[in-house]
Write a protein that binds this DNA or RNA. Sequence first.
DNA 1: GAAATAGTGTCTTTGAGACAATATATG
DNA 2: CATATATTGTCTCAAAGACACTATTTC
Lengths: 242, 242
Amino acid sequence: MGAALRRLAGVPADYDPGAFPPFAVTADLVILAVRPPAVEVLVVRRAEAPFAGAWALPGGFVGPEQSPVAAAQDKLRDKAGVAVEEAHLEQLATFGEPGRDPRMRVVSVAYLAMVAEPAVPSPGRDTREAAWMDVAAVDRGALAFDHDEILDAGLERVRAKLEYTTLATKFCGPTFTMAELRGVYEAVWNTELDPPNFNRKVLACDGFVEPTGETVSVGRGRPAKTYRAGSGRLLDLAIRRG
Amino acid sequence: MGAALRRLAGVPADYDPGAFPPFAVTADLVILAVRPPAVEVLVVRRAEAPFAGAWALPGGFVGPEQSPVAAAQDKLRDKAGVAVEEAHLEQLATFGEPGRDPRMRVVSVAYLAMVAEPAVPSPGRDTREAAWMDVAAVDRGALAFDHDEILDAGLERVRAKLEYTTLATKFCGPTFTMAELRGVYEAVWNTELDPPNFNRKVLACDGFVEPTGETVSVGRGRPAKTYRAGSGRLLDLAIRRG
DNA sequence: GAAATAGTGTCTTTGAGACAATATATG
DNA sequence: CATATATTGTCTCAAAGACACTATTTC
């Protein structure tokens, strides 16, 4: 579209695309899983400069005709191998300080994903491109760019959301026991919760979990009833941190 | 920087800025104030296509060397005439669907501002560029672009944040009465709260308000004690919606 | 049966909410 | 004094948390 045509169309001259600095837009993901007592984040090793060899959050550029969330969904599928329907994906925040990427101006729309961790080797024990890393082991400054800050935002969001939503079930498999669900809370909040009270509380929240009618035995002790995620999204009564 | 030089510097060829579509990045603001029983949003009338003549949220392009939040602060100062220190400004969400702006690809980082409404004419009674509009009077589809959606996100954020933060005081002047503070909650939540219980609840929250020791008389009735905002940011006990 | 884990029952404390009662102003 | 608004006091109920107790498995 030339300048003359643009003027004819009523589009002011100051919207000439060429007049604006070329911002690149990326979608970066904080993909979290829980393997009690650890909360783990999916990281990828950078192959190229800058920060070559460093760990970073998975992410990529948003395409010309692509929405940011679609870019995030693609990365979630590619990197975590998780079907989008099974995971929870939500926008987290946008990081756009000048200089956050030394190469060019990049605005990153960060997303938070909560997944039931697939069976993968322990983080750090393989040299593959992607690995699960215990968030407690992520040092300040360990991640590339400002990804430490993005990770912190994701962790804070998850801690808050477990209080008043049913999202903890996203960290569990299709069926789970109360102990597993409680393990999610205890890992995310780094606290201990009273099993009897947790049990009653969860069951008192409509739509949080549904009994499967089955039990499962893990090691010693009385077999535990199993549950599946309910249809509710918000808790009528908040689960409180220890 | 030529392609060859870029390769020498270890920057991969696929980071050629020219290879990326020119995203424009804007900062749009949901600037809210409370004039009980109304919650009001600051809107500006668009002078140019597209949506010429329609109301829109204030906003503008993020400069080449400017952070998005700095752009938002500039707009808050310019449009609302509010000192940044007095208002609360936080990032809300980012809206970047292709086609949300018919002219070009624009990614908007939306911010939420909470201000004590300055003395301005009632919305709709003047023809100035900017006006305060009762959010209850904003029809679906009344605002330009996807600004309805952005406004909804802002309102939802405010409703949630009043529950567990002290931000309601940002809608009040330097000093205020309990009735005024309660009016903020009642306007935002569109509900009625029991004055005695509200009073005790607020005073029980450490750091929410501080007594000034003064009283103020408005019309009939016993004069009300006045308070100023405390130093706390989070409430130890949530204020519950009616 | 001992130990381990799961789940139920009960008691105490705390906070939320309803609402009566009191305080202090105006007309 | 009647009325209006602000503020304090009191009672009741619901929920949170501590923890004793019961249930069901493995070794």
